[in-house]
Design a protein around this nucleic acid. Structure first.
Lengths: 227, 227
DNA sequence: TCATTTCTGTTGTTTTAACAACATTTTAAA
DNA sequence: TTTAAAATGTTGTTAAAACAACAGAAATGA
């Protein structure tokens, strides 16, 4: 276990917890390691989850199969990242995705119920653990909610303005940098890249926005007849 | 406070907790009530949230203003429902939406930190409280993730098949009922209702699905060239 | 039962997006 | 600095969605 402390220290779950305390917590959480060969299933769709997983070495893929057996990759899980935590919180509902080893990898499983109950003994950092765990889930929630707001718009123009407006408000300025290149932004908003570039150009021609590379400026008067 | 016990008992936060225990918990959580007149702000965008709110009477609206001041309603909050809980978990980030009284209403605020720390004294149900709180957040997470998977598809057809496939898998059968009427389904997937109806008809004509009212059946061989 | 309203499906038109192909700019590398 | 590769913007064509208008079916309730 010792060899993975650097990874654990950087994980969101153990952030702000000292190595010594991590050691004692791992016991308190009945942490156990398991190795998986590439392409092995770590979690199967339909399972009921009672343990939280964390990748400590290698990478895993979260995949989903639809009714017709078509697979799609939901996300990649890197070392230090939790997975299945949502389903661990709602263990009465079977998980609807599978987790597969993308390379040979080592997974740490933590007893979810022990995360929730503050143990009586030494483990004074347990409250911190609960906070971290909650922050991880709430953080994902935030990200999803925000993305949903943009994606629920019908046209590329509206999606873009929704996204840019949110970025502007976040940075508290009408000029701001975005963390995506065009292709990434298109993927994020689920639209075609060239169509997105085209729309950006139109918005600029109409003097609703200005941009140069990844730096954008929103014009105060806003889109025509917008309010 | 006593008068609201029926509402609290049915809320997700206190589900499975007896009235007596709710009473003692409310103390332990420093619950305080506050009344708001219609159109009053309960939470303002930009606030840092340290309390979780619950509507106990009346209704509230969660709204958002973009860069140009355009308001949109994110959701309606009914009695027994928590709000702002995500931001309470991540209190370092200011909330990006406002909560406004939609009618005269009464709000209960709970000290978020006390939800997380198990109090030493009588409150044996505190672990249950943490579980319920976590379930509420994780549950929303689940709903968002699922919706996102459908919405990220580009065509109405793909969105529909993604949604129907998920419903089918959930019910463990190729025949199942959906909880939406056509307009609601269109809103859920952010598409036009008539376009959705049209696509459903095409899918039926192509023998990929069958439907009658809200009962759908997926055909085993699936869409042409799908796999 | 009949009248009214709501819901659903259908069609045609207009708008928008996807897609493909290519030009230009920027970045990285040799 | 030159060359190659990657990223971005531009354009035209095709496919799909939005929108609007309406017809028929189903639900409601008087």
């Amino acid at each position: 276990m010792e060899e993975f402390l650097p990874v654990l220290k950087k994980s969101s779950l153990f952030s702000g917890v000292s190595p010594d305390e991590i050691r004692s917590m791992l016991k308190c959480l009945s942490a156990r390691m398991k190795q998986f060969k590439k392409d092995e299933f770590i979690i199967r769709s339909g399972d009921y989850i009672h343990y939280v997983g964390m990748v400590v070495s290698g990478t895993a893929l979260i995949i989903q199969e639809d009714f017709w057996g078509k697979r799609s990759i939901i996300s990649e899980v890197m070392p230090g990242t939790l997975f299945a935590e949502t389903y661990a919180c709602i263990s009465s509902v079977p998980i609807e995705m599978s987790v597969v080893a993308d390379s040979d990898c080592e997974i740490m499983f933590l007893d979810f119920n022990k995360i929730l109950t503050v143990c009586t003994s030494a483990c004074g950092f347990h409250t911190r653990l609960i906070q971290n765990f909650l922050s991880a889930i709430a953080g994902r929630n935030l990200v999803l909610t925000k993305k949903m707001q943009h994606m629920s718009k019908k046209t590329i123009r509206e999606k873009l303005l929704s996204y840019l407006s949110a970025e502007s408000l976040k940075s508290n300025s009408s000029t701001f940098d975005i963390p995506f290149n065009r292709q990434q932004l298109a993927d994020y908003l689920s639209v075609d890249r060239s169509a997105l570039s085209n729309e950006l150009s139109k918005l600029q021609a109409e003097e609703i926005i200005n941009f140069n590379k990844n730096r954008f400026t929103l014009k105060e008067q806003g889109p025509e007849g917008y309010l």
